[in-house]
Simulated assay, not measured.
Amino acid sequence: MKKAISVIGNLAVILLVLLCILLGYVKIQTITNPNQIPSVIGYKLLSVLSGSMYPVFETGDFIIVKEEKDIQEGDIITYRIDDSFVTHRVEEVFFENGQPFYKTKGDANNIQDQYTVAVEQVEGVYQWKIPGGMVVFQFFSHPLWWIAAASFAGLIFTVRAFVKLYRNNLRDSPDS
């Protein structure tokens, strides 16, 4: 039982360190390329701000898109229009001068989008979603959570140190 708790504690620490490294990497990308969505091995995390793709995903979900070149009808793509992003389903793929263009539509919308999307505008193809991810993100981005997490980690390390010290003292005591 003690070994299982130790393994779980070590895994939690490793996951926390990896998460911090990942967040640091994303933060560096955000600072060095402020006009681009941060990408980790070609995957990008976005939040859903409208209901245009309901029921596939809802407002407040996170979606993961992957940079891909081969886009087909029926794929859900995220693309840039000026300074905003749109995630809609490809209804039609056509070519002009050998370059692909896409006509898109939100699943909850009645009509196709008014514009065509050039391949250069595409940020990625939808891969999966994290339902309600925005709520979790808001919770974890609150400063009090980070204070609580750091305090909890410090408490775990302190308790482990005292337990180890206590065991060493028991082993080294003259009564044993």
Rank of each mutant, 00 (worst) to 15 (best):
I81H: 15
D82R: 07
D70E: 11
V56I: 11
E73R: 14
I76M: 11
I64M: 10
F57H: 01
P55A: 04
G74W: 07
R89M: 13
H88D: 08
P55K: 03
S52M: 00
M53S: 00
K69A: 13
M53L: 08
E68W: 13
G60S: 10
D83R: 03
P55Y: 06
F85N: 08
H88P: 09
I76Q: 14
T87I: 12
G60T: 04
D75V: 04
D70T: 04
I71F: 02
R89I: 10
F62T: 05
V90T: 05
Y79M: 07
V56F: 02
F62K: 06
K69V: 13
I76P: 02
G60D: 02
F85S: 07
I81D: 10
D83F: 11
I63V: 04
M53W: 00
H88S: 10
V86C: 13
P55W: 02
D83Y: 09
V65Q: 13
M53F: 01
I77G: 09
I64H: 12
K69P: 11
S52R: 01
T87K: 12
T78L: 05
K69G: 15
T59C: 04
V65I: 15
P55E: 03
D75C: 10
I71W: 00
E68G: 11
T59Q: 08
D75F: 05
F62C: 04
T59P: 03
T59V: 13
E68Y: 14
T78V: 05
D82W: 05
K66Q: 15
D61A: 07
V86R: 13
P55N: 05
I71H: 02
T59I: 14
R89W: 12
E73A: 11
T78M: 01
M53I: 03
T59W: 04
E67R: 13
M53H: 04
M53V: 01
S52W: 00
R80Q: 03
Y54L: 03
G60I: 06
F85A: 03
K66T: 09
D75M: 10
E73S: 14
T87R: 05
I81A: 11
V86N: 15
D83S: 10
K69R: 09
G60H: 09
K66N: 08
Y79W: 08
D75A: 15
T78Q: 07
T87H: 05
R89S: 09
G60R: 06
D75I: 03
E67I: 04
Q72V: 07
V65G: 12
S84F: 12
D75R: 10
I77R: 14
T59S: 07
F62R: 09
V86K: 13
I63R: 00
P55T: 04
F62Y: 08
I76Y: 09
Y79G: 02
S84W: 08
I81N: 10
H88Q: 08
Y54T: 14
S84I: 14
M53Q: 02
T87P: 08
K69Q: 15
Y54E: 10
D70G: 07
I76R: 07
E73P: 04
E58P: 07
G60V: 01
